[in-house]
Design a protein around this nucleic acid. Structure first.
Lengths: 198, 198
DNA sequence: GTCTATATATCGATAGAC
DNA sequence: GTCTATCGATATATAGAC
């Protein structure tokens, strides 16, 4: 099954991922997902008997995992850590302008929507964020010996990225992502110059 | 009219602000707003003939302005800038835990929801963010002489705050806000020690 | 200005023919 | 496993009595 059109279940997942990412959870209807996936409406409940919530939980965990691996691969593509961080934010700035400020973080919009209203989906988003922070902590740990500093840098990088996505999408301007990249590079530089926290 | 219960229009605005903040734009129905405001449904269209969009635009601009002034007042309540930033994020960490991770940024959820779907509301959120960055730029400008640095610090502080809100709400943990505060304090310290960018 | 009733559309979800 | 018809609930929005 490696070559042809993806199967129905995959197309539904893909359409749901794209729509939740751009329009959020409440803003995305199952009918629209079926249409974009070119699948009959009933197939959604055939493959996802838990309905909208099950579909959303799967897309959060799947697309969250993929996005985390993509960012990590981007970071690992440059040897010097400070240059790597700068390059990653620069790539994000370029990408968000190229996709017309539509496709940024795959789960942030849903995360804010469901934080106070849907415990199952809230936990799914929290798990993804924790996965990202853990991966970033390991990556920074290659250069920053203090474990607390490595985790703080990872957490800050993800927060800076999420905040920059909010401002960039709202203003239709890649500049916030560039500012975020310079700030993160400076934070990392400071950590490298001062190995143990003062 | 300074003493008694707020008038109907104000109650509708207040209920809309709280609901949009917690549950987002698509997740909030006008019926629910009328109920929480203890106002008849028809009054919404009496005071906001433009319907849901007009009501949302007013709440974005009004609550966005108030929130910005609140944060600025918080920053100005402490003389030393580094201590002030630390104190502000610490206050945010305390507040978000106290309100059960429901009330964070009044416009971020809506901003992400409407960025690709509603141009009127997108512009409203962009205007508010720009207002915040401008105010922060002026505040940082009291200690950081380079204008570019002052604006970068302001933009970074808002991005860090927004990103920390996403992670704190999702994980129901105030720690991301504390990490954000320490990182921002460090960024500011670096700017103060090195007055002109390298 | 206040409030109710209703119109029209769409929501998530289900049933059942094929 | 595919697809359509439809359910009941809810959405935004409007009309009109009071």
């Amino acid at each position: 099954m490696g070559q042809g059109q993806p199967d129905t279940r995959s197309r539904i997942q893909g359409a749901a991922t794209a729509l939740f990412r751009r329009n959020g959870y409440s803003g995305t209807g199952l009918k629209r997902i079926a249409t974009e996936a070119d699948a009959p409406f009933g197939s959604i409940y055939h493959f996802f008997p838990g309905g909208k919530q099950q579909l959303a939980e799967e897309t959060i965990r799947t697309s969250g995992g993929e996005y985390g691996r993509m960012v990590l691969a981007l970071l690992e593509s440059v040897a010097d850590p400070v240059e790597s961080v700068t390059h990653a934010f620069e790539a994000a700035a370029h990408d968000i302008a190229a996709n017309d400020y539509a496709d940024a973080c795959p789960i942030a919009t849903v995360a804010l929507e469901v934080a106070s209203t849907n415990e199952v989906l809230r936990v799914a988003t929290a798990d993804v964020f924790e996965e990202w922070v853990g991966a970033g902590e390991q990556w920074f740990g290659r250069w920053v010996t203090d474990p607390n500093s490595a985790r703080s840098l990872a957490c800050s990088m993800i927060m800076m990225l999420e905040g920059a996505f909010v401002l960039s999408r709202a203003s239709r301007d890649p500049e916030p992502l560039r500012v975020a990249g310079r700030s993160m590079a400076e934070l990392l530089r400071a950590s490298l110059e001062r190995p143990v926290g003062d």
